[in-house]
């Protein structure tokens, strides 16, 4: 079911007024998705966006595709049903740190474990926006919020660790202000067969403004963010002279040209390595934070296994009508 229709990003926008706060990164994400979709080669009628509850979850209303604005935390489960009903569809899950990691945490880990062929975009702003500023499962320790006036005492999840710990096959992280990187990651996620999980570091201008400035701001980003590409050296820095190497069981930031370090010492990113050990180290790194597609290892998807088992049974069981089926076995006639 590849698409034959040609679209521009405008074809992907619905007629509904977008109602996020001015300056919110959600606008950038929406535009990036709308720009990515014409590139994935699918017809609009074969695309479905599914969300839960939260600021991000208004997203489906703004897409001129099929969509469900679900209930809190359940988008991944709804999407599983959509995908099993029609495995040919391109199904996208829109969720946030509260929706996907708190109330919907169970569905998130299981949809990843099963490897349902979905594209899951986690809008991580480390705060509850729609309910007006309570801490979330990704809020930092000590963070003062409406519901933690003396500082948050609940240690946060690292979404990357959670995904890899659930045997995640695809994990990417990207800045919420970087439209171009986002669009390219979304396209790769759609190409990837399996549960593709993308964490967007999304700034909430109202309740948690500046949370990611260190990583996302044009000036500070180069020294604090390493954007990975498969097969490329793990090099970053304003002067492109910093890199990562392995020192024993630890990742180490080194400077090329100092202490005899050359480019040859720098690790090359292998997103396709089935062994997640290095991917774990990369998602845990805080300085620099690692973005880009960190892991992409294809395995049979749940919907493939589901369909294959169904077809194998259809082939194995002699074709039998319902009437034949209910007559099979012990029956008796009454006058």
């Amino acid at each position: 079911m590849t698409g034959e229709k040609k679209y521009t990003y405008k074809d992907m926008a619905s007629d509904q007024e977008v109602r996020w706060c001015p300056g919110c990164d959600d606008y950038v994400i929406l535009r990036s998705v709308q720009k990515a979709l014409p590139e994935i080669g699918r017809n609009r009628e074969d695309i479905v966006f599914i969300s839960g509850i939260g600021c991000s979850s208004r997203f489906p209303y703004y897409m001129n595709t099929y969509g469900i604005h679900g209930i809190h935390g359940r988008a991944a489960a709804i999407a599983t049903g959509v995908k099993l009903a029609n495995p040919e569809l391109s199904v996208w899950v829109i969720t946030g740190d509260g929706d996907g990691l708190a109330i919907g945490g169970n569905h998130t880990i299981h949809v990843i474990r099963r490897n349902v062929d979905l594209n899951i975009i986690l809008f991580n702003n480390e705060i509850y926006g729609l309910t007006k500023g309570q801490f979330s499962p990704t809020s930092l320790l000590g963070q003062r919020t409406k519901s933690s006036p003396f500082g948050n005492i609940q240690p946060p999840f690292n979404p990357g660790e959670l995904v890899l710990g659930s045997n995640g096959r695809f994990f990417a992280r990207v800045s919420g202000n970087s439209a171009k990187e986002m669009a390219s990651i979304f396209i790769e996620a759609e190409k990837f067969k399996g549960a593709a999980f993308i964490e967007v570091l999304q700034n909430c201008v109202i309740f948690n403004d500046g949370a990611f400035d260190k990583y996302n701001d044009k000036k500070t980003r180069p020294d604090n963010q390493l954007y990975l590409e498969h097969g490329q050296k793990m090099i970053f820095g304003a002067e492109r002279n910093k890199g990562l190497r392995l020192n024993g069981l630890k990742l180490e930031v080194v400077t090329i040209g100092e202490n005899g370090i050359t480019e040859d010492d720098i690790l090359v990113h292998d997103a396709h390595n089935p062994d997640p050990t290095l991917h774990f180290m990369l998602v845990r790194l805080e300085s620099p934070i690692v973005t880009g597609i960190i892991r992409a290892v294809e395995e049979p998807t749940f919907d493939q296994r589901f369909t294959q088992q169904m077809e194998a049974r259809m082939a194995a069981v002699k074709e039998m009508s319902f009437d034949e089926f209910v007559m099979a076995g012990e029956t008796f006639e009454l006058e």
């Binding site: 479905v48 599914i50 099929y66 469900i68 679900g70 209930i71 359940r74 489960a77 709804i78 999407a79 599983t80 049903g81 959509v82 995908k83 099993l84 009903a85 029609n86 569809l89 169970n106 569905h107 299981h110 589901f306 088992q309 169904m310 049974r313 259809m314 194995a316 069981v317 039998m320 319902f322 089926f325």
Partner: peptide, 26 residues
């Protein structure tokens, strides 16, 4: 499955019904 019955054992009761909602939508 040969009757094209798709029976999905979900992770919890809520996923049971919400996956059904997704399937009905589809």
């Amino acid at each position: 499955p040969h009757f094209r019955v798709k029976a999905f054992q979900a992770e919890d009761e809520i996923a049971g019904v919400t996956s059904a909602i997704g399937a009905a939508f589809a």
